[in-house]
C-alpha cells in the first residue's frame, strides 16, 4: 500500500478545505446579501467545475499554470519557482475544482437566516463585516460544516484535474486516487484493493467526526 500517497491526499484535502472555508464564506455572503454587479455571470463561472469534465478543467488549468500561461508566469515571477507539477499547484487546482462545493451549502445556510436578523443587526449599528462575523457565521455553523465535509471528501476523491496539473510525482503530487489508478494499470490489484478500502473508512470517519463536532448537524437543523 502507498501510504505516502494516502497521506498526501489527506494533506491536499486539509489544505483545500482550510482555504475554501475561509475564502468561500465571504464569497457566499456577498452573493446572498449584497448587490454584486454581474452576479449571475459570476455564479455560473463558480459552478462551471460541476458540469465540466475534470480533464477539460485540468487542461485549461495546465495551460494557465504552465510557464507560458499567465498564472504560471506571474507565479514564477513572484515566487521564483514553477507552479505546475508541484503540491501547491494541485492545491490551487483543487481549490478551483471544489469551489462550487464550498459555496453552495454556505449559500443555502445563509439564505436560511431570517433577513430580519440581519436588519436587526444593521439597526443595532453593525457594519457588513461585523454582521458577517457576529450574526451570519455563528448562525450558519451547520452549513459551514456541511460545506467543509463536502470539500474535504471531494478533494480526497479528485483525479482528473490533479493528474493533468500535477502528474504523478511521488510525495509531491501522487495522491491516493492516482496511486490506485496506477496500481490497476500495473495489474497490482491487491494494492488497489487495499488503498480503495482504506479511503472508505477514512471518508466515513471524517463525516462522523464533523457530525459529532457539530450539534446543529446532529439535530438535522
Amino acid at each position: 500500500m502507498d501510504l505516502t500517497a494516502l497521506l498526501l491526499s489527506l494533506k491536499l484535502a486539509f489544505a483545500t478545505t482550510a482555504v475554501l472555508v475561509v475564502a468561500g464564506a465571504p464569497l457566499a455572503y456577498a452573493l446572498v446579501f449584497h448587490r454584486v454587479p454581474g452576479k449571475s455571470f459570476f455564479e455560473a463561472l463558480i459552478n462551471l467545475p460541476i458540469v465540466l469534465p475534470p480533464t477539460v478543467l485540468g487542461f485549461y488549468l495546465l495551460v494557465a499554470m504552465g510557464p507560458r500561461g499567465g498564472v504560471g508566469r506571474a507565479w514564477e515571477g513572484i515566487f521564483g519557482s514553477p507552479l505546475l507539477f508541484t503540491f501547491t499547484g494541485i492545491v490551487v487546482a483543487s481549490i478551483i475544482y471544489s469551489l462550487p462545493f464550498a459555496v453552495a451549502p454556505m449559500k443555502t445556510a445563509f439564505l436560511r437566516i431570517d433577513p430580519r436578523l440581519v436588519e436587526n443587526a444593521q439597526v443595532l449599528g453593525l457594519n457588513p463585516v461585523e454582521i458577517f462575523m457576529r450574526v451570519i457565521i455563528p448562525n450558519s455553523l451547520a452549513g459551514i460544516a456541511a460545506s467543509a465535509i463536502l470539500v474535504f471528501l471531494h478533494s480526497i476523491g479528485e483525479f482528473g484535474v490533479i493528474l493533468m496539473v500535477g502528474g504523478s510525482i511521488p510525495g509531491e503530487t501522487k495522491v491516493a486516487s492516482i496511486a490506485i489508478f496506477e496500481a490497476v494499470e500495473a495489474l497490482r490489484y491487491r494494492d488497489a484493493w487495499i488503498m480503495s478500502l482504506t479511503l472508505v473508512p477514512v471518508s466515513y470517519l471524517f463525516l462522523l467526526l464533523v457530525n459529532r463536532l457539530t450539534p446543529e448537524v446532529r439535530r438535522g437543523a
Binding site: D114, R116, L117, E119, N120, Q122, V123, L124, G125, L126, N127, V135, P138, N139
Partner: peptide, 20 residues
C-alpha cells in the same frame, strides 16, 4: 445615511433575537 449610523432602536414584530 446608512441604517447602522442612524442610532435608532427598532423593535420588530417578533423573532429578531439572535438565537445563538
Amino acid at each position: 445615511l446608512p441604517t447602522r449610523k442612524r442610532g435608532i432602536g427598532y423593535v420588530f414584530q417578533e423573532f429578531t433575537l439572535f438565537p445563538n
